[in-house]
Design a protein around this nucleic acid. Structure first.
Length: 448
RNA sequence: GGAGAGUUGGCCGAGUGGUUUAAGGCGCACGCCUGGAAAGCGUGUUGAGGCGUAAGUCUCUCGGGGGUUCGAAUCCCCCAUUCUCCGCCA
């Protein structure tokens, strides 16, 4: 959420910066609503002040045993107008809140301008893609050849966009997450956290997935009878506090970013507790609505995948420093696994809703002859913190923290990268040195 | 799942419709006192926001929401959550 002061003071400037990310800010709507708010709020507060003064006077008269019927009659006439103004103010503030929640973050000045993926800027490259003197197979062919990846059975027991892994590949998958967690906790200073895989809508609103991106999530009703979608949409935009008769939902987490970052929601932190660095390994669930036809083959794009996620909660002056370090922590995983990659700075048009600046790490996939996203590291500045009211004490004042996160890494895609990059001519796959301790010393995955 | 009891400021804790404008304590900050410190004394100390150049002033905030009332921490309803007991369970 943007600071409403930015819209009050320099809405044209904000509109221009948002335009670079293909968001059209409704300036006229905001200004009209803001003017209305001002009028109604001033009037409401004036009436409230009069009512409070009168009520106090009544109390004092009654305490002295005097007659208060004159003031009583006077204050009664305020009632209707006050009620009307309060209701109207409530409605305006609801609209304002919904409007603010729908606006994406402002891109940092260093973010390259651009429309799409094609305009992202490569900032670094590590490792050399190997040369293969045989025809390379993709991970599907390799995994099925080893009888260790089974997409058909996954379709039978769940549906498309799920994977079944068996034997050494299942173990490799487990080894990867163990290896990543160990690296980040013992060498990069993160605290390991086990989190809920289902969260409430308040948490998703805090990190920015709600109210705008509900269709990307898996949603689970709890308790109570169904309310209509329209009613629920209204609750999402105005406020998600429960009240009589309304359905509550849990959502499957689309990333551990949601539970990890929301640890500090509604907290006022001690300044010396910063930076806070959390890491968690969780499954992630995404409905992938609107991605029909994209990456349908293999385990690149799944409804369920594992990810090791890094989150940092930092002092606002340190957040870009922290973004560099976090990016380095994610890169280190690929270096240890000896997988070639590059880092790109996402352009304004390709960044996520909540982000002020994002670096993607892309790993080389020989079967696709392309670099593919395996990690996304972002600085959200105060955007999520403002939604979450996550603050720290700063010289007597409360100041919003900055939040960051990055994948370190997406486990399924890392597995794909290892299978494809380490394949041998006979269809076997060599196990990266760094993972062998986690694989009982196994050096090569072969059929049988 | 059933029954009961709780949720008050950074923390503890009082408060059953009207000087509660939330007592008191702890902690913290500043000041006085002191050679310095402790003790003592004094002042301040929830958060969000409106109006105003400012001084200031007003509104909201006692787990969340709704209601009753001129007036709600206090009464009513719904929800969340914590604790105790029972049931079930990995």
């Amino acid at each position: 959420m943007l600071d409403i002061q930015i819209l009050r003071n320099d809405i044209q400037g904000a509109a221009k910066r948002l335009e670079s990310r293909k968001f059209s800010l409704d300036v006229a709507f905001f200004q009209a609503l803001e003017a209305e708010r001002k009028t109604v709020q001033t009037r409401t507060q004036e009436l409230q002040a009069r009512r409070n003064a009168a009520s106090k006077a009544i109390g004092m008269k009654k305490a002295k045993g005097e007659d208060a019927s004159e003031i009583l009659a006077e204050v009664a006439s305020l009632g209707d107008e006050l009620k009307q103004n309060e209701a109207s103010l409530d409605e305006i503030q609801g609209k304002m809140q919904a409007f603010l929640l729908s606006i994406p973050n402002l891109p940092h000045e260093s973010v390259p301008f651009g429309q799409s993926e094609a305009d992202n800027v490569e900032v670094s490259r590590w490792g050399e893609p190997k040369h293969y003197d045989f025809e390379v197979r993709d991970h599907v062919a390799l995994g099925e050849g080893l009888s260790m990846l089974d997409f058909e059975t996954a379709v039978k027991i769940a549906g498309s966009r799920f994977t079944l892994m068996k034997g050494a590949i299942a173990r490799l998958h487990r080894a990867l997450s163990q290896f990543m967690l160990d690296l980040h906790t013992t060498e990069h200073g993160y605290v390991e956290v086990y989190v809920p895989y289902m969260v409430n809508p308040e948490s998703l609103r805090g990190t920015g997935q709600l109210p705008k991106f509900e269709e990307d999530l898996f949603k689970i009703p709890i308790g109570l009878p169904e309310s209509t979608n329209a009613e629920y949409a209204d609750i999402l935009s105005k406020g998600v506090d429960s009240f009589k008769g309304h359905q509550r939902y849990y959502y499957l987490i689309p990333t551990a970013e949601v539970p990890l970052t929301n640890i500090v929601r509604d907290e006022i932190l001690a300044p010396e507790s910063l930076p806070i660095k959390y890491v968690a390994h969780t499954p992630c669930f995404r409905s992938e609505a609107g991605s029909y036809g994209r990456d349908v083959r293999g385990m690149i794009r799944q409804h369920q995948f594992d990810k090791v996620e890094l989150v940092q909660i930092v002092h606002p002056e340190k957040s870009y420093e922290a973004l560099d370090s976090l990016l380095g922590h994610a890169e280190e995983v690929l270096r240890r696994l000896e997988l070639p990659y590059r880092v790109v700075s996402l352009c304004s048009g390709d960044m996520g809703f909540s982000s002020a600046k994002t670096y993607d790490i892309e790993v080389w996939l020989p079967a696709q002859k392309a670099y593919r996203e395996i990690s996304s590291c972002s600085n959200f500045e105060a955007f999520q913190a403002r939604r979450m009211q996550a603050r720290f004490k700063s010289g007597g004042k409360n100041e919003l923290v900055h939040t960051l996160n990055g994948s370190g890494l997406a486990v399924g895609r890392t597995l794909v990268a290892i299978l494809e990059n380490n394949q041998q001519s006979d269809g076997s796959v060599s196990v990266p040195e760094a993972l062998r301790p986690y694989m009982g010393g196994l050096e090569r995955i072969s059929a049988g």
